[in-house]
């Protein structure tokens, strides 16, 4: 990569940074203007003395009687040094958020990988035999999975898990949590315990992704199937499958990678239902609970994290294109 690649790339990174700053500022104003942390105190019967409530809200920069811009100034100067402040009940947002990012990553990693690979594989397969009976069956099934809300899918999987355990008379899978609390055993047993906890949520994450990605990948492949270069490849004696996998798949991976990186970035902060149903205390649940408690700093922090993820996804997909796609070097 020469200057001609690096300079525009840097320019785009800078542009994204400005966008990011604008986005997080908007998020803070929105959260601070619409959420009501005071309710946590006022809803107690009897509520604590008003002066004490103000003091507690002031301590966390959450007091709605402080001008919004003043609160924003305090908040943004904290962000500048990487401090997201405190929750209404006094916990460090940074620490809680990093714990929860860990949980979300552990929850989503396997499902996301499975979703990407499965989606591409399924979409490539159906895309090369459009309107065949296999394609119709897969289409119907994926539309079904896409149209079922994630929470319903998760609860259904959980029911299946409970039922399977009952039928088997043993704990094949565990339906809640990341690991059995207080579990003692060797490394192998611990790993198995975690695996049994991971099966159902991984399916709940992967199935909708497979369904969605496969639709996207199917149409990308279908566009290529009639292309000149594929006919040439087949004329040289390749089977249809060989030609699709060796040639068409490569071409389609560029737009697919961009699409995947954005949707994975969104996934990190949006799996509240999967997290709640399976009892994993991740980022999505954090946002959900924080909104419920009017916890402005926590909401803003999660949204910032989401914005950073999306920005990073953009940078990654730029990078991928710069490296893989020869055309981008010409522009």
């Amino acid at each position: 990569m020469g200057r001609r690649v690096v300079v525009p790339l840097l320019r785009r990174v800078l542009r994204r940074a400005v966008l990011l700053f604008t986005a997080v500022s908007c998020v803070y104003f929105l959260a601070a203007a619409t959420l009501h942390p005071r309710e946590n105190f006022e809803a107690q019967r009897p509520p604590p003395p008003p002066a004490a409530v103000d003091a507690a809200l002031d301590a966390a920069n959450l007091n709605d009687r402080t001008p919004l811009f003043q609160r924003y100034a305090v908040w943004i100067s904290g962000i500048a040094v990487g401090d997201f402040g405190r929750t209404w009940d006094g916990a460090s947002v940074n620490e809680e958020l990093s714990r929860r990012i860990g949980v979300s990553v552990r929850l989503l990693a396997a499902g996301a990988v499975l979703g990407c690979i499965g989606g591409v594989a399924l979409g490539t397969w159906t895309g090369s035999r459009v309107r065949g009976s296999a394609d119709r069956a897969v289409t119907a099934l994926s539309l079904l999975v896409i149209s079922v809300p994630v929470v319903v899918l998760a609860v259904a999987l959980q029911h299946v898990g409970v039922w399977a355990n009952q039928v088997a008379g043993m704990d094949l899978v565990r339906v809640t949590g990341e690991a059995t609390p207080g579990f003692s055993g060797g490394v192998g047993e611990q790993a198995l315990d975690r695996l049994r906890h991971l099966v159902l949520p991984t399916l709940a994450v992967a199935l909708p992704q497979i369904a969605l990605y496969s639709r996207y990948q199917r149409s990308l492949i279908a566009d290529q199937v009639g292309a000149e270069y594929l006919r040439t490849a087949r004329a040289k004696g390749m089977t249809r499958s060989q030609a699709v996998v060796r040639h068409a798949l490569r071409v389609t991976l560029i737009p697919a990678a961009a699409y995947f990186s954005y949707s994975l970035a969104v996934l990190l902060t949006s799996t509240v239902f999967t997290e709640q149903v399976f009892g994993w205390h991740g980022v999505g649940e954090y946002l959900f609970e924080a909104v419920g408690q009017g916890d402005v700093n926590a909401v803003a922090a999660v949204c910032c994290f989401g914005a950073v993820c999306v920005t990073a996804a953009g940078v990654v997909s730029d990078l991928v294109r710069a490296v893989v796609d020869p055309r981008s070097q010409a522009g």
């Binding site: 898990g161 565990r174 339906v175 809640t176 207080g182 149903v277 399976f278 009892g279």
Partner: peptide, 18 residues
């Protein structure tokens, strides 16, 4: 051992013996 779970997850965890 006290375990924190959302209401729906509590039901499932109880049925599961967790």
């Amino acid at each position: 051992i006290f375990r924190t779970l959302a209401p729906d997850a509590l039901d499932a965890a109880f049925l599961d013996g967790s």
